[in-house]
Write a protein that binds this DNA or RNA. Structure first.
Lengths: 265, 265
DNA sequence: TCATTAGATTTGTCAGACAAATAGACTGTT
DNA sequence: AACAGTCTATTTGTCTGACAAATCTAATGA
């Protein structure tokens, strides 16, 4: 740690939750086997600060939409330097938990991460593995029908009404490409949400976002839009009739039909 | 930016790759309405630095396992202060791209993120949404059979041999709970990998890790281990006979049978 | 030969300062 | 009174320089 921080650091640790001692014994194995203790991970102050602030958020102490105390105040309360605090803030920010603004009325604001956080993480991994585009298409073609199947038995009336409304918007904006694409994306998200399973929703939304970016890039012809509209109508009717296998089948066919459109480049 | 940094910052931007200008055109449709330009996002220097270093990694310029130049050198090359650089490093670290060590031979090492990165992100989201445990079980019960189905037609001989070997390990360590659980987890991962779809693999692995932590916590009785072993044998034989639906069915039954064991607390 | 010590290197932390963005109050003009 | 411009205070963004801690290497001494 830094210079006169023998004081400040200990005051921080006093407030701190755990892990600061750094006892070194390595392997004191008198017997013979077992007793494997893996490499001691020395925590950084910035990580500890990030942990504490994060737990304030997830525990609901600092609700979404509210703001943290200013950096100055946090520094004095936590007993760490501003540099350390700011490193912790960058961690939380990259997790999608906060965003910061300058000026009065600005500060450190709490926000909920949402699927975008997952999407970024996934996107990074896929870039590193140089995953082919076809794998994304396949994953979506497998996941969305799964959601539709569940949605057929779980969708609430309100959700079905909302989907109906989106369908109306799609009809309305049939001749405005960007608006139509946006509504079609909303329809997909609605179907996914109707499954009432957070994990499937987050997963399917993430891969959908990655592909959706492509769709808006490529755009859709009028004929393709009309086909998409018809497909959406069929899917919604299957959901309404609570026919899970039919809904799944229709979603799968729909996605399969659109794959060549997206894949062309 | 800070004080005399009019110089340093511009030299940095000179080296910089992209985004420093803040042009906003979005949809250049001169027709009538629209002309929505969303709030101008001013990039921080630390974000720009993080972007540049990240792209060095994903573009393979700095391969996995190697190390970056020291902070001192990076500071002089990028023309930013150490504080700014370190904030960027915390971002990359939270993305799982690097890790740092002190001392000579230490420094900033490049590593590949792996599924753990996704898992952390997912775990955070689920905590915030207070997603019930049952949703995780359901997601796994739906995803793993999907992988098994694909694996039946795509698994290479080598992968099948590896699974056979793991099965042997499971038999061998049938009376050692922790060792057995580890091998069973490896078996699951092997089945998942045999589908040859990165997205499904990452997804299923993530949710599996979240549940796997629970399994090792709870432990398994001898009888449960024997049942698990039998199930694994059945799954592998279905994969070998290239029977996708059978493999999927067996995986689903296996997971369904184990749900009450994990769910009890 | 081996343990110990000293030095060098790299990250970790602190402190203080100034720059930039921004909201709100204040002031002068119409 | 309404309005535009200015001034000020607050908050984040960045820089600089310093010291502390961890750790590898090499020299040193028994």
């Amino acid at each position: 740690m830094g210079q006169d921080k023998g004081v400040t650091a200990s005051s921080f640790v006093a407030v701190g939750p755990v892990t600061k001692g750094k006892e070194k014994d390595k392997d004191s194995q008198p017997v013979k086997s077992a007793m494997r203790l893996d490499t001691l991970k020395v925590p950084r102050a910035s990580e500890l600060v990030a942990d504490r602030l994060r737990s304030l958020i997830v525990d609901g102490v600092v609700p979404e939409g509210s703001t943290f105390p200013s950096e100055k105040e946090l520094v004095s309360q936590l007993g760490v330097s501003r540099a350390t605090l700011r490193e912790a803030l960058r961690i939380l920010e990259s997790e999608g938990l906060i965003l910061t603004k300058t000026g009065p009325r600005g500060g450190i604001m709490v926000q909920r991460p949402g699927a975008a956080s997952l999407t970024r993480s996934l996107s990074l991994l896929l870039q590193l593995e140089s995953t082919p585009f076809s794998s994304m298409l396949e994953a979506r073609r497998l996941l969305e029908p799964l959601c539709a199947n569940l949605g057929a038995e779980r969708a609430t009336k309100e959700e079905l009404v909302a989907l109906e409304a989106i369908l109306g918007e799609m009809r309305l904006h049939l001749h405005d490409t960007t608006a139509y694409v946006r509504q079609q994306l909303a329809f997909h998200l609605g179907v996914i949400a109707s499954a009432h399973n957070d994990i499937l929703r987050l997963y399917t939304t993430s891969v959908g976002e990655l592909l959706g970016a492509r769709t808006t890039q490529v755009g859709l012809s009028l004929e393709e839009r009309e086909i998409g509209l018809k497909a959406a109508e069929g899917i919604l009717s299957a959901l309404k009739s609570r026919n899970g296998t039919l809904a799944a089948r229709r979603v799968e066919l729909h996605l399969q039909a659109f794959e060549p459109i997206i894949d062309k480049e």
